[in-house]
Design a protein around this nucleic acid. Sequence first.
RNA 1: GGCCCCAUCGUCUAGCGGUCAGGACGCUGGCCUUUCAAGCCGGUAACACGGGUUCGAAUCCCGUUGGGGUCACCA
Length: 482
Amino acid sequence: MKPRVRFAPSPTGYLHIGGARTALFNWLYARHHGGTFVLRIEDTDQERSTPKSLQAILDGLAWLGIDWDEGPGKDGPYPPYFQMKKLDRYREVAEQLIAEGKAYRDYTTEEETAAQRKAFAASKGLTEKDDLRRAGFKYTSPWRDSKEKRDQPFVVRFRMQPCGERIGFDDLVGGRHEKPDEDLDDFVLIRSDGIPLYNFGCVVDDHDMHITHVARGQEHINSTFPQLMVYRALGWTPPAFAHIPLILGQDKEKLSKRRHPEADVRAHQQNGILPHALLNFIARLGWSHGNDELFTRQQLIELFDFSGVGKANGVWNPDKLLATNQHWIKAGDPADVARAVLPYLRDAGVPEVLADERLGRAVKAFQPRAKTLVEMAQAIKPYYLRGVTIDGAAAAKHLDHTGKELLKKARALLEATADWSAPQLDPIVDKLATETGAKKGAIAQPIRVAVTGGTTSPGIGETLELLGRAETLHRIDAALGN
RNA sequence: GGCCCCAUCGUCUAGCGGUCAGGACGCUGGCCUUUCAAGCCGGUAACACGGGUUCGAAUCCCGUUGGGGUCACCA
């Protein structure tokens, strides 16, 4: 049977880097096995869900190249893919559980529940919720299936009937997980407004959508137990689970949107990270294949398996992300990189630029020199402008009297060059060095400073070719003070 | 705090009873060189601790310590 997996984000913010990795692992698993990747929107948090967030998540996935087979905009056999569109279905399943005595209507209001907590706390001289649990607080409904409150709003609670049994599952990553059923409370399935809670909606949907493998963050390990109870009560077979270790910030805390800017996938896009580089990096955070570090998209698909996923949480390492990005910029096809750098060039203030042959050459020159697309755009920009501002220190060092004399000689040779191409341009430095007895650096640096304004650039030939004959001579003349 | 999970260089990790404990990032020495990169060669650095099991433990078991997660009418 082909696996059916899903990524089920809640549209309450941008695509989180942890979510992106969860999506990636699911996607890779589906693609590896020729299965189906489902995107389901868990929009039951009415307080926080927004259309804008939904769009941000969709955009993030699209940018990363993670496509779904069923989900928003892609009809599949088990719609709908938005939880808010199948409220009746949850209600129907809940009613079934109630009818079978496995769940009940609880007419207790939130206020009453809170009061019960407070009373318990007071009796123990405590205040904190956490302390209540330690002190043995266990919720019991005063209004379970109450007849007299028949027309009042109610929540549907799962009826735990602990019998000292250990419930458990075999995790594809973490191995066996067990917990005594006494540890579970009567948890809420459906809120008083008729909207299901995560532990219920998710079970119903995974079942309805024929999900075979649920890969999600380790923070969900504990919620797996109540979900297992629901599966059992309904007589449904649970999917296989794979709980993926978390990504921690450099402070070793769980990557949070509040404290960690790197948690935002868009931040990396803005910083000039190639989508594939980010994919490669987050794949390696938690998953490994021997000593390999760099993977193409195709290789990831071929090699990925949950058996390669480790158990320990991983710390975000910006340096390594950068190194990975640098690699893929360098290794990429110049035309592809050119296309990728285009938006960054526009942002840098080079609106007229096109992904043409000339940009291709510029990209090629800077591929080994840029760690990010932002850097590359910055580096390329001066080649698209008329004239250049020369750095004072660079001028002082290389455009002194002798520097200018050599520059004049170079200019003459340059002007006489018929074929304005790197292979023709480069030897001029050697030629002049031989003629004048000056060192190559003494020839090349004044030229470099004159045409780029600074002391660093790609090879002289490449640089001049990129600039073009007219602009090169123009800048040299300007540097010579003509 | 209860419950759950985890533990190899600073970081990501390989290792699945016998290895000089390997790779990558970072840091660092050198080579190359017309600058800057890139590239190439080398170096630095780890099995958290304590008990077992075993002829032999990074690998298996227990405990300690440390880190993380989770305890809602959020997901």
